[in-house]
Design a protein around this nucleic acid. Sequence first.
DNA 1: TAGATTTTTTACCAAATGGTAACTTTTTTA
DNA 2: TAAAAAAGTTACCATTTGGTAAAAAATCTA
Lengths: 189, 189
Amino acid sequence: MLAEILKKSFDQYFTAPIEAWEEFAGYCEPVTFEKDEIIKSHNAVEKYFYFILSGSAGIFLWNENNFVCLDFAFDHSFCCDYMSLLLKQPTPLQVVSLEQSEMVRIKSEDFYKLGRTPVGQIIVQISAETSFIDKQQQQIELLTKTAEERYKILLNKFPAIYSRVAQKHIASYLGITPQSLSRIRKFSK
Amino acid sequence: MLAEILKKSFDQYFTAPIEAWEEFAGYCEPVTFEKDEIIKSHNAVEKYFYFILSGSAGIFLWNENNFVCLDFAFDHSFCCDYMSLLLKQPTPLQVVSLEQSEMVRIKSEDFYKLGRTPVGQIIVQISAETSFIDKQQQQIELLTKTAEERYKILLNKFPAIYSRVAQKHIASYLGITPQSLSRIRKFSK
DNA sequence: TAGATTTTTTACCAAATGGTAACTTTTTTA
DNA sequence: TAAAAAAGTTACCATTTGGTAAAAAATCTA
């Protein structure tokens, strides 16, 4: 059942055999979070790799008295401090639930273990690859688009984001202050 | 010999057994480029994965009448349009040599093949993971640092970059115009 | 549900960066 | 090596975004 949800969630991006998802699902443990819970603290090591069944989360960096959002994760996507998981080291990144959320998670050791099995390895490999591609796309937007353009791109990518996530988080993700986002929204109709 | 250079170049970041590097090296073909040669065209599919023995290259995006540099690659590092290599699709990215360069390269099919061998898989896996981490670091700098701070960070990371790479490329990498970089350099001592 | 807290909006001015253009310097090419 | 082309610098003003502050709106909490 969970394996099928996983497979369906990612089939549009890549095809891993159902056996791979079954193996992944076999390691999964369900977990729920209220809104604004710290799922992984800054200066801690990431112990889990999450899949969001419902709800959402943000990856934040603490920077000069406020949080900067590096990424949003919504229903049916993976989520964790991936850098910390990979390096097995503490990072300044914090993972926070943005809504009441239902997730499943697998222990980091099990995630590594999965990467060493022929059938599970594709999931681990592809998650690294798609994470890179997503990050490069974010870099391209930061380098070549204005804040207003980036705001419209984000709305287009996640149409419901405005009703689900605080604007101050969206502003930090866009690389601007909440005041600037408010101004952009005002003139951007 | 090449396997040893490869191993030494990456030992500080991760340890793949010498057998993995020998397998990698076994696929390698030497190739040289003059300055400003197009190594991989935009709208083309990446056919190779490169390792730079000497020289340098940039990954560029064509955007509104000029090139934006997404990344620099110098001696003893990998280099290619990784997104295109992974997706096996054309991208708007272009790889260009920035100096006369000596490289080795392996065919994309051989890179995929390497990823399916137990010993070579670690190289493919780690290259995806470090690419993600590097990109996330770039995102953090774009979101939380001023152009002047990013310029100093870049100089610190690649002290020789100023003498090896055109300032217009550095400016585009920092997300500013060449005029702004010139101004920053003037007041930044 | 009232009060407290947080978030969002608005306004003002300051600072950073962009765009255009002219000039200087460096590099390339004939 | 001289001319041409490209890159870098400087100056000017315009535009975007930041910082501060205060008010309005929304949310949380007792």
